[in-house]
């Protein structure tokens, strides 16, 4: 009796573990999947808002219950191998919008306009590629009017999270990308930020 019972117990235990593991998988997978899948929907909304560029104020919501809207499209071109990454940027730097896409700080300059445009995203979803960012890499920002401006990475810095300097207004058309640092996998909040600043190659203002 006992001989038979032991493996059954173990089996129940193991099945329980499998279920536990699956449950544990749900949240992280959901978080990551959200960030990937949202880009598809966002792309759609972005195309729509590009087509209707006459109507500036209309906000094309990527899905019906969305509380943000796409404002720009950012392409990251790595200097040496010319690999390209594209993201649709959402307005409003809230945790909610950053879960789906890189987010634009509404206080900062509007995309492709004179001033400092600040965009941030999670370092383990969209902005993971920034870990290998180098000076001279190029960023192309396309605004809702369809205008494209190329920015060149000029500084890469790591700052403490209390440092508000990346938000500073600059007398220049430029782009500031912010993501958490370091890129190591942890479960705790990171107190440092990687700040990449890029300057427009052609002058606008």
């Amino acid at each position: 009796m006992k001989q038979v019972n032991q493996p059954t117990k173990a089996r129940i235990l193991l099945i329980g573990l499998v279920i536990l593991a699956c449950l544990l998988l749900i949240k992280p997978s959901y978080l990551y999947a959200k960030s990937v899948l949202a880009q598809l929907l966002l792309n759609h909304a972005w195309q729509k808002s590009l087509v209707q560029n006459g109507d500036n104020d209309h906000k094309y919501l990527p899905w019906q219950w969305a509380d943000s809207y796409p404002v720009a499209k950012l392409s990251y071109i790595k200097g040496n191998d010319h690999s390209v990454k594209n993201w649709i940027i959402l307005a409003g730097m809230t945790g909610r919008s950053m879960a789906f896409a890189p987010a634009w700080l509404e206080d900062s300059a509007k995309p492709n306009q004179y001033g400092n445009t600040v965009i941030s995203a999670h370092n383990d979803s969209h902005f993971d590629v920034l870990e290998s960012a180098e000076l001279g890499d190029e960023l192309v920002l396309e605004d809702r009017q369809g205008k494209q401006i190329t920015y060149r990475v000029a500084t890469i810095e790591i700052v403490a999270e209390q440092n508000s300097e990346p938000y500073l207004f600059q007398d220049e058309t430029m782009l500031t990308l912010i993501t958490c640092y370091p890129f190591t996998t942890t479960n705790t909040a990171k107190s440092q930020r990687l700040v990449i600043q890029a300057v427009a190659i052609e002058t606008v203002f």
């Binding site: 949240k27 992280p28 997978s29 945790g95 999670h122 999270e161 930020r193």
Partner: peptide, 17 residues
């Protein structure tokens, strides 16, 4: 503060896998 920009999904994901 600057925004918090880490989903922190990987560790749990790895552990769960």
């Amino acid at each position: 503060k600057l925004p918090s920009t880490a989903l922190n999904w990987q560790l749990q994901f790895n552990a769960a896998i």
